[in-house]
Computed example of a mutant assay.
Amino acid sequence: MKNLAHFFFEVGMLKRTPRTGFQFLGSGAESVAEHSFRATVIGYTLAMLDGQADVGRVVQLCLFHDIPEARTGDLNYVNKKYVKTDESRAVDDLAKTLPFGDAYRETMEEFEARESRESLLAHDADQLEMILALKEYKDLGNRYADEWYPFAVRRLKTELAQQLAETIWNTDSTRWWFDGDEHWWVNGKREK
């Protein structure tokens, strides 16, 4: 039980681990945990729409894909040019302490291999989460988001994710809540 308590504290560290790419974008901030949550919801959605993938497996891959960053930190694309991390050691060291260590290791190996349908969808969910963040910052005036978007799109492997990325990029990020109902926004209640 002590090892599980340690694991839960380690996972909690992701709430305080920043995604470092935003410093290069010039605006925005997000923790690894925030990123992983939305990526997991996106992965679930992709798997449901795909109709062939094991939905639970995609969710599991998304949920666990960045846990090693509690030990290694988040490295952005600039960092990765110069810094090498031993993520497999971080995975192995954690796996040794977990009663489901072998399953955790297999999950991480599948995600890294990018061979199964489920891992491709999980990787696409990871990139779509970044595309959503880029679109949100673009809508707030960050001109660099337009430069980053084409690279993120080129990382997508499934046609489903590519179509969704295009839709995301052409959708105002505030339209989900700001519905144009002037009466509501002026009076705070529905017109009868």
Rank of each mutant, 00 (worst) to 15 (best):
V41Y: 08
G21E: 13
F64E: 13
E191Y: 05
K15G: 03
E87H: 06
A39K: 12
F7L: 11
E30I: 02
M13P: 00
W185G: 03
A113T: 06
D66K: 04
I131K: 02
K192V: 09
D74S: 07
R155G: 10
R89S: 13
G51F: 04
N3A: 13
E166L: 05
I42G: 06
E10R: 11
P68F: 01
V11D: 01
D124T: 01
A29S: 14
Q127N: 09
A133V: 00
H35D: 10
Q127D: 04
R114H: 10
A47Y: 11
R190F: 08
M1A: 15
R190N: 14
F178N: 12
N79K: 07
Q163Y: 07
V55I: 03
N187C: 04
F64Q: 11
D102F: 10
F8P: 02
A145D: 11
D181S: 08
D146P: 00
E136C: 04
Y144H: 13
M130D: 03
L134F: 07
L14W: 01
K80L: 05
D74K: 02
D93E: 15
E87P: 04
A161K: 00
E106Y: 05
G101T: 12
K80R: 11
R155S: 06
Y104K: 08
L160K: 02
S116F: 02
H35S: 08
G56E: 13
P18Y: 00
G141V: 09
R190W: 13
I42M: 12
M13L: 11
D179P: 05
S173N: 09
N142W: 10
E30F: 07
L134Q: 12
P18S: 01
D50Y: 04
K84M: 07
E129R: 13
Y104D: 13
R155F: 14
K189N: 11
M48N: 14
